[in-house]
Amino acid sequence: MTNIIISPSKYVQGRNELYNLYEHVHSLGNKFLILASENGIKRTKNIIENSFKNKDSKLVFEPFNGECSKNEIERIKKVLIEESCNVIIGIGGGKVFDTAKAVGYYSHIPVVIIPTIASTDAPCSALSVIYTEEGEFSEYLFLPKNPEVVLVDTSIISKAPVRLLVAGMGDALATYFEARACVRADANTMAGGKATQAAFAIAELCYKTLMRDGLKAKLAVEKKVVTRAVENIVEANTYLSGIGFESCGLAAAHAVHNGFTVISECHHLYHGEKVAFGTIVQLILENSPSEEIEEVINFCIQVGLPITLGDMGIHDLREEDIMKVAEVSCAEGDTMHNMPFKVEAEDVYSAIIAADNLGRMYK
């Protein structure tokens, strides 16, 4: 049995930390390609240039075209070669990260990730999700290593819409319960082995942090301020959840999320919002203690995550639609099969209906 934990080489987080970018990345190279949306470049360019002022380094700012596609990856690779850059920095959200990580992999150069939102645990992962030009899923690109540096400026994160932070909490909410299921099942993780004690402890800390500081962080970010609770939740959403899911594994919660992607009424939801409801469904599948389920539901109510199908946008409940969700969640190769017992589509259907009914009781 091989136990493996993987993570970024360096994780940096703090208020106004972008001003210190040079100090954290100068050892990686001296010619930096900075990939961000046009708005992202406008927001960060002056700060980054001041960080590198009077330093022997070259900065090239390149606008991201909006989709992590093979064509976009090839386009950025060409810019990288033309400008002789030896480090790539991705600033923004998930598709920018995925593109930067893929370009770094194919070009054999270090990758730096700077999230401007804390809505998922993607910044720390050794994975890129590739889409078509039309935005449809194409393939997963599993990378041999995580980014060299992940830098999180919480003063930037706190200015983003609060719903994004809450969605990140929804994604992080599943981390401990999916890790626990994978450990019980002795399942292989995305790191290529079994979970380490350290990774499982990180997953458990992620959950404890959410319960302790989630509501406080939401209330602070509603006012665009950074408190200790905000720092803790950003770390939970980004780093603790990132290490926890990648080095412990995913299970039913994310599989149920995948199932709900086939329902058009749910397309307005963020990833973490669907995962949060999937977490409740997983706990129903496991027949977890009532106290545990109640704690999760109360947390979701406090911060504004969905606990019913109505909250998910499904008001006209059709049996065939929910069964389709259940069938997709049990597809071959999906993470539902990391549960420590056999799960059929009928089991998932029943758990979704039961979770919805339980959530209605709290309404």
Results as ranks from 00 to 15, higher is better:
10 K>W: 00
12 V>A: 08
17 E>L: 04
18 L>V: 09
19 Y>C: 01
22 Y>I: 02
26 H>P: 05
32 F>W: 15
35 L>H: 04
40 G>M: 06
41 I>W: 01
44 T>A: 15
59 L>C: 05
62 E>Y: 06
65 N>D: 14
65 N>A: 15
67 E>I: 15
69 S>Y: 03
70 K>Y: 01
81 I>R: 05
93 G>T: 13
93 G>N: 07
100 A>D: 09
102 A>Q: 00
113 I>D: 10
121 D>G: 13
123 P>K: 13
143 L>H: 02
149 V>K: 03
152 V>L: 12
152 V>D: 01
152 V>K: 04
161 P>R: 07
169 M>D: 04
175 T>H: 05
177 F>D: 11
179 A>P: 11
180 R>N: 09
187 A>D: 00
189 T>Y: 02
195 A>N: 06
201 A>Q: 05
203 A>P: 08
206 C>H: 03
211 M>D: 00
211 M>N: 00
212 R>Q: 15
217 A>I: 14
219 L>I: 10
221 V>H: 01
225 V>I: 15
230 V>C: 08
242 G>Q: 02
243 I>D: 09
249 G>P: 11
257 H>L: 07
258 N>D: 09
259 G>P: 10
260 F>A: 04
260 F>D: 06
267 H>N: 12
267 H>W: 05
269 L>P: 11
271 H>I: 06
273 E>V: 12
280 I>P: 02
293 I>P: 02
296 V>K: 11
296 V>R: 03
312 M>G: 03
313 G>C: 09
349 Y>S: 01
350 S>N: 10
355 A>W: 10
356 D>N: 15
359 G>R: 08
